[in-house]
Every structure is written in C-alpha cells, then in structure tokens.
Design a protein around this nucleic acid. Structure first.
Lengths: 244, 244
DNA sequence: TCCTCCTGTTCCGCCAGACGGAACAACGTT
DNA sequence: AACGTTGTTCCGTCTGGCGGAACAGGAGGA
C-alpha cells in the first residue's frame, strides 16, 4: 500500500494544516518519523511544487498547488454545482450569512459560505469541519440519515466532557427536525442558525443549506421568513437537478 | 526523489482535474504509466481517503479531502488574509465582480472572486489560472516585476498562434501601467476589467485587486470611480499590514 | 570562549517494497 | 462465438526508499 505515498500525504497535511510555517523536526516528531525520511519526502514535495521552504528560517510552508487541485475537486462536486445559484439567491434575498454543508464522516463540512456584510464572530469557514450534531446543517442532514444514532453516539463520546450533550434527547429532537423539515440551533449566546436539507436519492440528504446570523437581528418573524426561503430553495434545487 | 510520491501526486492531479470521474486506463495512458502501477497507487489513495471509486462504473473521482488541506494553505496565505476585507468592501461599494490574484509561475492565479449578482459570461473561477499578460491583474503585477520581459516572452511563445500578441508592444504598455498605477484590459467584446497592484516588499507586487464587468455597464465615469476605489483599497491594504 | 543542544542536511549499506510484464475474470460490442 | 475492452491480481526482479549515524551551522548558557 505504497508506504511512502501515505507518508508524503500525511506530511503534506501536516504542513498545510499548520497555522505557521513548520520545522522539519516538528513534523518528524508529530508523525513519529525519522528526520531523514521527512527530509527526503519534503525535498520531493518542494521539487514538485507543493511545498516551499523559507530562505532564512528553513521552515516549510504549503504552496497553493494543493489548493488548486482541491478546487478542481470542489468545482466538479455535484451538490455544490447545483446549489451555488441558490446560495447566492438566498444571500441576496436575506442579506444574512448563507452556507452549504455536506456530511463527511461524523462531521459536517462547509463547502461554501457567503458571509453577511455585517460580520459577526467569525466562527467556521469554507473547508472547516464541525461535529454534525452541533451545527444546524448537520442536524438537518442527520434527520434523514439511517445510521444517525451511531454518528451521534460517536460524537458524544468524542466531546465527552466538553458540554452537556445528551444523545437520547438529541435523537428525539432529530425526529422533530425530520417532521418539521428544518433545523434550528443556537450554538452561541447571540447566534442563531436555521437549516433545511437538500434531499437526494434514497430518502437521504445530500447536503443542507443554512442561514445564520445574530439573534438580535434574526427575530421570530425574520426566522420564519428565512425558513420559508430555505425550504423553497431546497425544493426548487432538487427538482432542478432531479436526482443528484 | 521518491518516484512513487511524484507519481501518486500526478495521479491525484489527473483525477481531481478531470471534468468527470476517470477510468484507470485513461489515467495510465495519459501519464504513460503501467496499469498495474496506477491501480496500486489509486488503491492507496482510496484507502487514504483522497479518492473514491464509483460502485457501478468503477470510475475514480476525487474526494473533498484534497480540497480541505488546500483550504488550509489558502486561509493561511498572508496576502489573502490581508486582502479579504478589502475585497468585500470593494464589492459592496461597486456591486461589480471583484477578484484577488497572485503571480504563480507565468500565470496569474485567482485566489478569490466575489461575483456580481448580475452574472456575465462565467470566465474564470477561484483556483483557475490565466497567462499573466492576458489578465488586468496580471498586468498590474508584471508592471512591477523585475523579470517581466522573460515571462512575457515565454507566454508569447506558449500562445504562439492563438491571437495577435506583440511582446514588445506589451512591454511598452507595461511601462504605462507602472506609471499610471493601474491596468485596464478588455479581454472580450463586452467585458472590461481594471486592476491595481498590492505593493509588497522590494518594490514588487504581492498580488492585485481587479474589478470587472460588462462594458455596457462600466462606462468611463464608473471606470474612473472603480480605479479610484481600487487604488485607495490597495493603499490602505499595504499600510494596514505593513510589510507583507 | 568553549561547551552543549538544537537545528537542517548528507551519506550509505540493507533489504523492504515498489515496479511492471503477464495473466486473469467480467462485460460490451461486433 | 470471437474479440476488444475494462479493472484486477499475481509474482519475480531489483530499484529505490529506509533510517541509523555522522555532519555543518547556529543559538544559548555557563
């Protein structure tokens, strides 16, 4: 199974995921690899153009080449292609932050996010992950996921002592979400988010559209409008593309 | 130089860059590799989560994992971080399409693009490339690039018979761009774009901001406004972050 | 100033493991 | 039914990745 390929990709992940240029020894230590091995692989990554090395500090940082090939994958992603115009439409109609999420493992992955011009505490960004049960979009998706219980349980185990998260109560809540057709969550004191699922084939959700903003602006009346806009957008989305 | 790593990444590029799920044989042929080699590497890429295989057709398609690590590289990109708020501001002020580009090899790379709600012929997208001399943003950058002549010559050789592109005339035009402080181009009949450089250290441009739209809407008066807004945004940008 | 502990880098012998030709099973087309 | 594909598997050869050890250079401390 091509050991060096696996190592090279894990090194690339480490370099790209760091907040600042990384040092060779840190990479070697965090991945439990030999320095000489990391050095050789980093040298090939440099020569391939995926990584470059700062001249003075000798630190390694990612190039935008990885991003380029990633963008290729994203732009051809069927759900994103289909949902893009509706995202813009929702943002134009409401003026709030609108995002598109899909399920990825036990997390929800933010494919796209059009932020409100009046910014709030910048929480998630395109390309970031959040445990599915903690995001409105994730709840909308999980409500139609056959093995939602298993996901919820794993997530509960993962953030064991983080906050009060009751799996059983959450599963009952999911039943409500499925019945209502939308999800609502208040992840932080002054933040509220509503989401509706993008229904795909087999009764499962291919993704979710979310509208979020400060609770002080999104009062009950505006939330009702937002939910209506979301559900209408999702309905037209699935009929536009038929089966995703 | 880790042959298998280089091969794996070129295979990943091929899979991610394709417009549709690809077949093993096509990858093998286009990269001049043995089928068994491609198969083995693809299997490791699948097991690492970078690629998955369609159940029925056995075709291979990219996962969003490559995009995730790429987004890590992008969000930590210094120029993009610094320029993001100004992009939003310019878009809010003008209502036109605003984009951020950097020089990458002989091309200009679109890091970000906020499209006008009134869309025009969708040309470039975030993550795509264009030969630097053919884009307004590229011209703004090249005007301050020491070896612009070499780049222009290579690009001229590359698109030899594509259109009438005169390197010498272009270099004279670049001098004007440098003196004026902004670039203007009309890549298609009804499209006009203006761009200003984001000046970095050493007198070189770290990137460029571009405003583009249909020529029918962007008349002379609006273009003058757009250029003023661009130059002001770029000036404040460099003073905000000091040395990029 | 010398010593110590880092760093990134280079060298090289060993042998794991990547390589690739060939053969395979499963479809689709002629 | 014969042929052209496809993706997949097998296996012998030997390349090329592996990693311990040694190196050069710099930072910090005594």
């Amino acid at each position: 199974m091509d050991k060096s390929v696996a190592r090279a990709l894990s090194i690339l992940e480490a370099v790209a995921g760091a907040h600042a240029p990384v040092r060779l020894s840190d990479v070697a230590q965090s991945l439990a690899l030999q320095k000489s091995t990391v050095h050789r692989i980093l040298r090939t990554l440099v020569s391939l153009g995926y990584v470059d090395q700062e001249p003075v500090t000798d630190r390694y940082r990612p190039t935008l080449k990885a991003w380029e090939i990633g963008m290729g994958a994203l732009t051809h992603h069927p759900v994103r292609r289909a949902a893009a115009p509706f995202l813009n439409e929702l943002h134009a109609a409401t003026g709030e932050t609108v995002s598109l999420t899909v399920l990825s493992g036990d997390d929800v992955l933010y494919l796209e996010k059009i932020v409100s011009p009046r910014p709030m505490s910048f929480s998630t960004r395109a390309g970031s992950r959040t445990p599915a049960p903690l995001a409105a979009g994730g709840q909308a998706i999980l409500a139609h996921e056959p093995d939602a219980a298993a996901i919820v349980e794993r997530v509960a185990a993962r953030l064991l002592n983080r906050r009060d998260f009751d799996p059983d109560a959450f599963m009952r809540e999911l039943a409500d979400v499925r019945r209502r057709g939308y999800a609502i969550s208040r992840p932080e004191p002054d933040v509220v988010a509503v989401a509706a699922p993008i229904m795909g084939q087999g009764g499962r959700a291919a993704g979710a559209l979310t509208i979020s903003g400060p609770a002080s602006r999104l009062d009950d009346a505006r939330l009702i409008d937002a939910v209506a806009a979301l559900r209408q957008a999702c309905a037209r989305l699935v009929e536009t593309v038929g089966q995703i």
